[in-house]
């Protein structure tokens, strides 16, 4: 049976297109996964930083209500203080 050239050309085009689709899809999945991973880590860091900041605020408030040397010393070691700035 003779194949017409048009059919052959179309089949070749279809094969090329299918292979390219696979390559692009694989790349897309790989890059999306990397991007999502980075975004997840950054979100985690931001959430943890925000939580630590809130915890620090709570500790500073606590030190204002219950002043004692230990907590002041602790806060100072982390660069935090509840004392007003010197004039």
């Amino acid at each position: 049976m003779k194949n017409s050239p048009l059919t052959t050309i179309l089949l070749v085009l279809l094969a090329i297109s299918a292979v390219l689709s696979l390559v692009f899809c694989w790349n897309y999945i790989r890059k999306s996964r990397e991007l999502r991973g980075l975004q997840f880590q950054v979100t985690q860091i931001n959430q943890r930083s925000a939580a630590i900041n809130s915890l620090m605020n709570d500790v500073v408030e606590y030190s204002k209500k219950s002043p004692n040397r230990d907590i002041d010393h602790l806060l100072e070691s982390f660069g935090l203080t509840n004392r007003p700035p010197a004039k």
Binding site: S17, L20, S21, C25
Partner: peptide, 14 residues
């Protein structure tokens, strides 16, 4: 038809 559909998908994925 298949070439058109597959090409469209390829361009979209690209």
């Amino acid at each position: 038809l298949l070439v058109v559909v597959s090409g469209t998908l390829t361009i979209f994925l690209l």
